[in-house]
Design a protein around this nucleic acid. Structure first.
Lengths: 135, 135
DNA sequence: CTTGCTCCTGTAGTTACTACAGGTTCTAGC
DNA sequence: GCTAGAACCTGTAGTAACTACAGGAGCAAG
């Protein structure tokens, strides 16, 4: 499998695959006699794992830890669970934040009189925010 | 007001204030005779506006547009409303995505047997994801 | 044998900052 | 007047996770 095939198989950009190799989450693959990268099914599985973890919001350093854990099946599961737990907490706090943003944006839009900017609630809402406390 | 005062007044990092000047969202301020930046109340208001917009998830190019609109009060409100509307849509889609991530993470964690990695549902859940379609 | 595709390396650009190096200026205390 | 230490200045580089491009090589088809 050349890099283009792996890209099509996994939906991951070619440049991103090479980036993952530089970043140390994909091992340097074997090379064909002409110097081109040669991948196998294991690489596709690993890349699929990485892609899914990234889509779940794990950063590459967490992915590295998860991959290392995966390679020692006798190790404890707690590290993986802890990473997922902290990821869940981050997701919960992003959720709470986004919910309040949605409310504020909805309110801004519904209050916009569709008149002149001087009467526009959108800009006023943004300007008003500066006096409110923020955590 | 020197840059440090403005920073304390708005809660925006000094380096970030200088960055905003380079990025063209804060106008280059007057300088004291010693070359130091000198700000007024209008700058603090503008920076508060920028900060609030950034907290709402607007990127700097949207902030630039909103600021430009703000400066021509005779213009139509529709541009501002449209920016807020597209922002709302982005927030809604991020919300939907995060909600499903939360469910998947919760499930992963609750199914983790807290045994060996070989039985770990967290890693398995990530590996399994690769065969599922993603939009 | 030329066109065009895929691949290679290496570097620079992206966003929104943040951090540092190396230098100047101001302020307070002695 | 002198010195220590803030606070400020410019300019550059680092961050994450890519993305894009320059410039060159190999390969397959017509």
């Amino acid at each position: 499998m050349q890099i283009g095939d792996l890209s099509r198989a996994t939906g991951v950009n070619i440049e991103t695959i090479r980036y993952y190799e530089r970043a140390g989450v994909l091992p340097p693959p074997a090379r064909q006699s002409n110097g081109r990268r040669s991948y196998g099914a294991a690489d596709a599985r690993r890349l699929g794992f990485i892609r899914h973890a990234r889509e779940l919001g794990f950063d590459l350093s967490s992915v590295r830890v998860l991959l290392a854990l995966q390679e020692q099946p006798e190790a404890s599961c707690e590290d993986a669970s802890r990473i997922a737990q902290s990821q869940l907490e981050a997701v919960e706090s992003r959720l709470a934040r986004l919910l309040s943003l949605r409310d504020e944006l909805s309110r801004m839009i519904s209050e916009c009189g569709r008149g002149r900017v001087s009467e526009c609630r959108v800009i006023e809402a943004l300007a008003a925010g500066q006096t409110q406390p923020h955590g």
